[in-house]
């Protein structure tokens, strides 16, 4: 409580045409923490992301970032404050080289402010960011046309688009889904590195095993409500969680 709280969600609720997508959710994320959010399909995880980042307006409830209310702000303003997200459905700019995809965030007001207006060689900055996230410059991966990249790189490109903004909170919406084990195993250290650099991360994920290795805390959602919250081992002991989550998703891979 107090100083440690970075992002705080208070009693947020949203219904779509009578269906409660998110119901009275409250939780906090401390600075530098990784919070995992899990739950069966349709439990309202993506809606929660949309509510925090302003893509969907909540029916009631509030979100605070650094004790400042951000509910009601348009998405680009929230991103401008430093809360950014990846999308489950990636639509990169297909006909351009990968690094050109980062030109959009590099032109944002946030970057202009932090870099003092003189960014100079934007392409160079973009390539540096991509290299940091695993686009091997020596193999010319950052120069490849986006549509020719495999899914693993596209997911990283999506993450890179967020990181180019120099955010303080990154919300990753299922960045492991659809990836092979080896692709995930290269992504995990990447996220660990981000945390070491002081990034606060919220991860929505289905791949529990990889997620549990990363997160400090995990929160379980079902039918739009919070079912449990705590360290991974504790949460998985919870009987309700086992019934609601593991009962339906038999294969815990």
């Amino acid at each position: 409580m107090g100083e440690g709280i970075f992002l705080q969600v208070k009693g947020i609720t949203k219904s779509f045409g009578g269906v409660m997508a998110v119901k009275d959710m409250s939780f906090e994320i401390a600075r530098g923490e990784i919070l995992g959010v899990i739950g069966p399909n349709g439990s309202g995880k993506t809606t929660l992301v949309n509510l925090i980042t302003g893509f969907v307006k909540p029916d009631s409830g509030e979100v605070f970032f650094k004790h400042k209310k951000i509910t009601g702000l348009p998405p680009h303003k929230i991103a401008d404050l430093g809360v950014t997200r990846t999308f489950q459905i990636m639509r990169p700019y297909h006909s351009l080289p990968a690094f050109k995809n980062l030109i959009v965030p590099l032109n944002s007001p946030r970057i202009r402010r932090t870099r003092g207006g003189k960014l100079g060689d934007k392409d160079g900055v973009a390539i540096d960011i991509l290299e940091e996230i695993g686009f091997e410059r020596d193999a010319y991966v950052p120069y490849k046309i986006a549509s020719s990249l495999p899914l693993g790189y596209l997911k990283r490109l999506e993450l890179a688009r967020c990181l180019a903004l120099k955010p303080e909170v990154v919300i990753c919406d299922e960045i492991f889904s659809g990836l092979s084990m080896s692709e995930i195993s290269t992504m995990v250290p990447l996220i660990e590195k981000l945390q070491m650099e002081g990034m606060t991360i919220m991860m929505i994920e289905h791949r529990l095993r990889e997620l549990f290795r990363l997160v400090n805390r995990v929160m379980v959602m079902n039918f739009g409500e919070k079912l449990a919250e705590g360290v991974p081992e504790e949460v998985m002991e919870n009987k309700e969680v086992r019934e609601a989550y593991l009962g339906t998703e038999a294969a815990l891979c």
């Binding site: 991103a79 030109i103 032109n107 934007k122 967020c162």
Partner: peptide, 24 residues
């Protein structure tokens, strides 16, 4: 130029542009 690139990104995927902190 960059502005043209941003405009085309808005046409293709306006949400990603918003999430990049740019007012479309």
């Amino acid at each position: 130029e960059d502005i043209g690139l941003i405009l085309r990104s808005i046409k293709d995927n306006d949400q990603a542009v918003k999430a990049s902190g740019i007012s479309i």
